[in-house]
Computed example of a mutant assay.
Amino acid sequence: MEELERNEPLQEETLNTVSQIFKALSEPTRIKILHLLFQKECSVNEIANTLGMLQSTVSHQLRFLKSIRLVKSRRAGTSIYYSPDDDHVMNILEQTLRHAKHD
């Protein structure tokens, strides 16, 4: 894993990627979806039913999350299952949730 240099200037591409991640985490619907996927792999229908959302809303949000590589998908027969792409953003989400609950 690449080590971050504190004194090194940030590249424009890195800044844009970080901005997109924080944009994703600024939407409550996406936070709910990521939180659920942190617990288990789910299909669109499972996410919609568990969170009480429309399937179209979930699909739209998953497309965005997948486009910035926060979630990945796998096909099993006619179903597509979603899970976190890696643990980095999930760690950020978990730490932020802990901070929000901290007195």
Rank of each mutant, 00 (worst) to 15 (best):
Pro28Gln: 09
Thr29Met: 05
Thr29His: 03
Thr29Ile: 05
Thr29Val: 08
Thr29Asp: 04
Thr29Ser: 05
Thr29Cys: 01
Arg30Asn: 03
Arg30Tyr: 07
Ile31Trp: 02
Ile31Glu: 03
Ile31Asp: 00
Ile31Pro: 07
Lys32Gly: 11
Lys32Trp: 13
Lys32Arg: 11
Lys32Glu: 14
Lys32Pro: 09
Ile33Pro: 03
Ile33Ala: 02
Ile33His: 03
Ile33Asp: 00
Leu34Gly: 10
Leu34Ser: 14
Leu34Cys: 12
Leu34Met: 13
His35Cys: 07
His35Arg: 15
Leu36Thr: 04
Leu36Trp: 03
Leu37Asp: 02
Leu37Asn: 00
Phe38Ala: 15
Phe38Gln: 15
Phe38Arg: 15
Phe38Pro: 04
Gln39Trp: 14
Gln39Val: 08
Gln39Cys: 12
Lys40Ser: 06
Glu41Pro: 03
Glu41Cys: 00
Cys42Glu: 03
Cys42Lys: 03
Cys42Arg: 04
Cys42Trp: 03
Ser43His: 05
Ser43Ala: 06
Val44His: 04
Val44Tyr: 02
Asn45Lys: 13
Asn45Gly: 05
Asn45Leu: 11
Glu46Asp: 12
Glu46Ser: 01
Glu46Thr: 01
Glu46Ile: 00
Ile47Cys: 08
Ile47Gly: 10
Ile47Pro: 09
Ala48Pro: 07
Ala48Val: 05
Asn49Pro: 09
Asn49Gln: 15
Thr50Ile: 14
Thr50Met: 11
Thr50Pro: 08
Thr50Val: 14
Leu51Ala: 13
Leu51Asp: 11
Gly52Asp: 14
Gly52Phe: 12
Met53Tyr: 07
Met53Cys: 12
Met53Ile: 06
Met53Gln: 08
Leu54Arg: 07
Leu54Thr: 05
Leu54Asn: 12
Leu54Ser: 11
Leu54Val: 09
Gln55Asp: 14
Ser56Tyr: 02
Thr57Cys: 11
Thr57Asn: 13
Thr57Ala: 15
Ser59Gln: 07
Ser59Asp: 06
Ser59Arg: 07
His60Trp: 14
Gln61Cys: 10
Gln61Pro: 10
Gln61Ala: 05
Gln61Leu: 04
Gln61Tyr: 08
Leu62Trp: 03
Leu62Gly: 04
Leu62Gln: 06
Arg63Trp: 08
Arg63Thr: 12
Phe64Gln: 08
Phe64Gly: 05
Phe64Pro: 04
Phe64Ser: 06
Phe64His: 09
Leu65Ser: 06
Leu65Gly: 02
Leu65Gln: 07
Leu65Tyr: 04
Leu65Asn: 03
Leu65Ala: 05
Lys66Glu: 15
Lys66Val: 00
Lys66Ala: 11
Ile68Tyr: 01
Ile68Gly: 02
Ile68Ala: 02
Arg69Gly: 13
Arg69Gln: 14
Arg69Ser: 15
Arg69Ile: 13
Arg69Thr: 15
Val71Gly: 00
